[in-house]
């Protein structure tokens, strides 16, 4: 022991450094609980957000991602998954978290555009040359046309497809009875109801089943980029439904971890021009009109209705159409 004093000083310095390091890392970690197909999107968002936040606040942050089925993620957050923010693709999932008291009931007012930085809509993908001549919703209920739609009971794309079809028929034929009849015919043309959106894509593309695939525009554009573009054609119907993807800060978690500023900064970043551009590059419709204009080649003009406008609210649509014994179940009941 030649230099006990120096040694102890060194030890103390190391210890305090370690402590500092760990406490700093602790304070600046953020967990984003999100839905399945958003994995790539948030990988890009995080890569841009980390340097942005460092420049803005000098803080070094790590963003962790957790992905899974939207409602399973919501359940996990309710049950205690320590996610600072949730980024979902359906309002009902965040409503469920709010109902459990984990985040504020008026979360839709916490950010611009009803807390939905981007969205998508339902469009059609048909086989090359459009052999069945499918141009609008009415063509889908024709005899001899086969559609692939994800199961509305388990997949958001399925729910939106169903609601858009109902809304179109109600506009077209003027009554709920006629809409019910139309949607019934349409779903009897569906040979496979895959549990998830990606599975439906696989069924249509790889298994070669069906004449038309109904799914999110973001998925359709992704497909035409990933697979052989010439094998398929995109069909944009006369109207469709706005499928906005909402986000929220999980109050219970950020209060506990002291990460509110970071969580709000992260979600606000999604609404910034840079965040909006990243969403658009992932084929999601940005809300910022200026950014939307930059990508107008990509997003075909289409008249969009909203769930609130056509069905009152998500809760009402859910209870009337998708709950057990609801309109959707009745399509399949033997008469």
């Amino acid at each position: 022991m030649h230099h006990p004093a120096r040694l102890s000083r060194l030890l103390a310095a190391t210890c305090s450094l370690l402590l500092l390091g760990s406490s700093a890392a602790h304070a600046t970690e953020l967990l984003n609980a999100s839905y399945d197909v958003a994995r790539e999107l948030y990988k890009d968002v995080n890569a841009s957000f980390v340097p942005y936040w460092k420049q803005k606040t000098g803080e070094e942050v790590t963003i962790n991602q957790s992905h899974g089925g939207s409602s399973k993620q919501a359940r996990a957050v309710i049950d205690g998954l320590a996610a600072d923010v949730v980024t979902m693709n359906q309002q009902t999932d965040i409503d469920a978290i709010a109902k459990a008291g984990v985040l504020r009931a008026d979360w839709r007012d916490a950010f611009p555009y009803h807390a939905a930085p981007y969205g998508s809509t339902i469009i059609f993908l048909v086989r090359k040359g459009n052999p069945k001549q499918i141009h609008d919703w009415g063509d889908l209920a024709r005899e001899g046309v086969q559609l692939v739609i994800p199961n509305p009971k388990t997949a958001g794309n399925g729910r939106y497809s169903y609601l858009a079809a109902w809304a179109w028929a109600k506009e077209q034929y003027g009554s709920d009875d006629k809409a019910r009849e139309f949607v019934g015919k349409l779903f009897h043309n569906v040979p496979v109801l895959d549990a998830g959106g990606r599975a439906a894509t696989t069924t249509f593309i790889q298994r070669g089943i069906g004449d038309v695939l109904l799914t999110f525009e973001s998925e359709v554009l992704q497909i035409t980029k990933t697979f052989n573009k010439d094998d398929f054609e995109i069909v944009v119907p006369s109207m469709s439904i706005d499928a906005d993807a909402p986000v929220a800060v999980v109050d219970r978690v950020v209060e506990q971890k002291g990460t509110r500023a970071l969580a709000e900064g992260y979600l606000n970043f999604l609404f910034s021009p840079e965040g909006q551009r990243i969403a658009a590059r992932h084929y999601l419709r940005p809300r910022d009109p200026a950014v939307f204009a930059e990508f107008q080649e990509q997003f075909k003009p289409i008249r969009l209705i909203t769930v609130e406008g056509a069905f009152g609210s998500w809760a009402e649509a859910q209870a009337r159409h998708f709950a057990d014994g609801g309109e959707f179940d009745r399509i399949y009941q033997p008469h």
């Binding site: 409602s71 359940r75 199961n151 009971k153 109801l193 549990a195 859910q318 399949y332």
Partner: peptide, 19 residues
């Protein structure tokens, strides 16, 4: 997964959880 034809019971459970 067509209701009444090719839906297994575990799928029914999952769809109920989904709601």
């Amino acid at each position: 997964n067509i209701p009444m034809v090719s839906e297994i019971t575990p799928l029914i459970i999952i769809s109920k959880l989904e709601q």
